[in-house]
Design a protein around this nucleic acid. Structure first.
Lengths: 132, 132
DNA sequence: GTTATTGCAAACAATTTGCACCCAC
DNA sequence: GTGGGTGCAAATTGTTTGCAATAAC
């Protein structure tokens, strides 16, 4: 009983695959306009929502409040500076075991997880201490 | 060189402590109005931002897009249903070691982290498969 | 033909910002 | 008196929704 995808969903899925990185709904909308014309912004949001429920797309919210989407892929986590917003990727991800456990113990079908670290990068920490 | 806190920041900090749970900026605003009057919504946001930079308050964004705040406290993570929004707390947190490592290897002063699992609760999964 | 999907524009809601006032020092 | 802190209201922005037109089967 796989959910058959709509035209827009296919387009979005394909573009996300080609990009291979996170992108906001707004940026995705612009991107799609560039390629083949004709995808409304509302449709982008609706499609992303559907794809998320389908377990093929994941989302996370950036510090500025906008959501970014990508194909579901594990172990793409970040360490973000609360001050300047600088974000560095993290390689390790120690939550797989826990995820497996939760999936059974909590009776949840888990699609993806987010793991984010927040703090101050060394530069901002200095400025912060200096009272800038 | 500890940042001295403003009146509003103190009020908010105190209320967050008393509550002991996450709360949105808007709800915090209402809460503060109930107690002692006189805290503007803008000030709530500004104070929360400052407290976050001070490393005493943490934030995460709910599925509906609104941010919730609490005192920095480790190991309060969640498993959330993408469909119905149900959210169950998780006890375990396997990222402490990694956090310590990152703090040195990445030259970041880490204040807190978020760890969220997303998927479908068993009820919604059934409805989903049924094509509801 | 019937039903789901789409696009557009209007509606929403959380958050941010401009600015005048006020408090602390 | 000066500078930061605050409140209010307006502005901003990401996202959602109503509805008529359109595509899918």
């Amino acid at each position: 009983m796989e959910a058959q995808r709509t035209r827009s969903q296919e387009q979005i899925l394909q573009l996300l695959g080609k990009l291979g990185r996170e992108i906001s709904a707004q940026a995705l909308y612009v991107e799609l306009r560039h390629h083949r014309q004709g995808v409304g912004l509302a449709t982008v949001y609706r499609s992303l929502e559907a794809l998320k429920l389908g377990g093929v797309v994941q989302a996370r919210t950036l510090a500025n409040g906008e959501a970014v989407y990508s194909l579901v892929q594990e172990d793409k986590h970040h360490l973000t500076c609360l001050q300047c917003g600088a974000s560095v990727p993290i390689d390790a991800c120690p939550v797989h075991e826990l995820e497996a456990q939760l999936q059974t113990s909590k009776r949840f079908r888990i699609y993806y997880h987010t793991l984010e670290f927040f703090g101050l990068c060394s530069l901002c920490e200095h400025q912060h201490l200096a009272g800038a």
